[in-house]
Design a protein around this nucleic acid. Structure first.
Lengths: 233, 233
DNA sequence: AAACGTGATTACGGGTTTGAAACGCCAAGA
DNA sequence: TCTTGGCGTTTCAAACCCGTAATCACGTTT
């Protein structure tokens, strides 16, 4: 879940950021301190939810909201110190999804964000096409599906996680320690035994030959690298 | 536009009614003075928007909301004299779209109703989607009707919600925690027992074999996935 | 009042995955 | 050629994960 927080009050940004990361484990929070920067980040990042302060230098929250609504229907919650009616009504009429007056409770903010997300979360089109293809291997990340020469193969969770890390960084050498910490956890750094075992299992399932590997290449004393191979026609 | 106002304070009902009729010329406003009547009217009328007071005789607004959410996703705004945090958060978590504390400005109320309507009317593709078909299974989202090989089967509300989540994201792995939070609520994250039981029941009713499932596939240690199957001709 | 349907919990069995160790092989350097 | 460090493979028992049946509590219906 990607959030954008636009507010010139650093204390608020920080507090909200921490709260969001606590509520959504996969929260990716970006922050902007003024309207212009906020709009730029919005266009760049296309966040899932935007929290927008009204009173800001350079460009007010209303202006930012207007620009956002010209190109996007993404959920926007306005935050403001002013509690007056017309400001609220104006924000909502302009297309904001909710409007909160500072100071607000974090619990309420999160509950309102969830309420808005419930409504706006479209069924997010699931593409049937694999999201990664290399040689005979195709991977659909949405469905955790891996096929070799069109045949689906079964991977255990750990095998999948390892393959995922390799493929995500295809073409780049991943140091052993980095793979260990990403797949097993930080405390497993240096424990080559796991890696050796699982790389071997992966190669077997992918039909790769360690003597002459096509996919998982070994960089001696450094790490592994997933080969970027032209898709088989 | 059909509204339902549930509140035991006649003055509020009357004022809101007049306001609604002023704002929406084609407004059709129904009123109920207590929770039971409110629920009954809701089921009878299927209003476009429901305004629900929390403190009412016989059946609290929370109870009414819960019952409503078992069968419908229609927009609900809670109204209350109590302004305390937990009450707001509870209402929003239970599926309310907004939560206003009395006394409130009519302008703000209408602005919020409009904001909620904007959101809830958009997912036209969902409600318009005639039905979902996969293999021998056909689902009519509008009527909550599910048929297997042409035979209609009865699902309990919880079973339906679970199936709905799976089908809505057919082809995508849904993590256990996500299913738990969507079907039972955020506070149930980690409680695998519910999921296991209901998945088992669903599979039985759908005629699916867990050893070799056609529809609900298990991604060990990750989640469940509804198979994307070509419709049986 | 009794039967029923539903949702919430618990307990248990079977299969799969994982961790850990042992062994084997190759390549680089002495 | 020998040695050693670095990587690959296999094996097996313990741990874990999932499916299902059984039970309980509660509210509704007959």
């Amino acid at each position: 879940m990607k959030f954008l927080v636009v507010d010139d009050d650093k204390a608020i940004v920080e507090a909200v950021t921490i709260g969001l990361q606590f509520q959504w484990q996969d929260a990716e929070v970006h922050a902007a301190a003024d309207g212009e920067e906020g709009l730029r980040l919005f266009l760049d990042l296309t966040p899932d939810v935007t929290l927008l302060d009204v009173n800001m230098p350079y460009m007010s929250g209303f202006e930012v909201l207007q620009k956002i609504r010209e190109v996007s229907d993404a959920p926007v919650l306005m935050l403001t110190a002013r509690g007056d009616e017309m400001s609220k009504v104006k924000g909502l009429e302009m297309g904001a999804d909710d409007y909160m007056v500072k100071p607000f409770s974090h619990l309420e903010l999160f509950a309102r964000i969830k309420a808005v997300l419930r409504r706006s979360e479209l069924p997010a089109p699931v593409s049937a096409a694999p999201s990664f293809v290399s040689g005979d291997i195709a991977i659909n990340f949405d469905g955790h599906e891996v096929t070799v020469k069109g045949q689906p193969i079964k991977l255990t969770p750990t095998e999948y996680k390892l393959l995922y890390q390799l493929v995500r960084n295809a073409g780049r050498v991943l140091p052993f320690d980095m793979l260990l910490s990403k797949v097993w956890g930080d405390e497993y750094r240096g424990d080559m035994d796991y890696l050796k075992t699982y790389i071997s299992r992966l190669r077997k399932k992918l039909g790769d030959d360690s003597e002459n590997p096509r996919y998982i290449l070994t960089e001696r004393a450094v790490g592994y690298r997933f080969a970027r191979v032209a898709a088989a026609t």
